[in-house]
Amino acid sequence: MAKVYFSEDHEWISVEGGVGIVGITEYAQEQLGDVVFVELPELGTEVEKGDDVAVVESVKAASEVYSPVSGEIVEINEDLAEAPGLVNQHAEADGWFYKIVLSDETELDDLMNRKDYDAFVEDLD
């Protein structure tokens, strides 16, 4: 059973068997507005936790996406090239960005669970 974690930069990561699926949260997509382009990392890239690995663009804004964990990028969501709107429609499902093989699962301890993240977002508004 996959377990989902959240970062203060509004990324989510769903981890199962040492592999994480990363995307931006529902809250983040609402803030951005209509997503028009997602620049994804290259396959095989080794990233450190906190690296800017992707850029998500709306008409009037561009935001860096910081990797919530360290590891190697093993898959990217090719569908986003044709349909960046998936990020708006299903931010926390079909609108995922990349899959990463975690190099240090203890990094997950620094992230929030759903309940804590919801409270975190509540405080921002």
Binding site: E57, S58, V59, K60, A61, A62
Partner: peptide, 12 residues
């Protein structure tokens, strides 16, 4: 495609 431009990306 103005997200490439300085008024949005600033130093990037």
């Amino acid at each position: 495609l103005s997200t490439r431009e300085q008024h949005i990306r600033r130093e990037k």
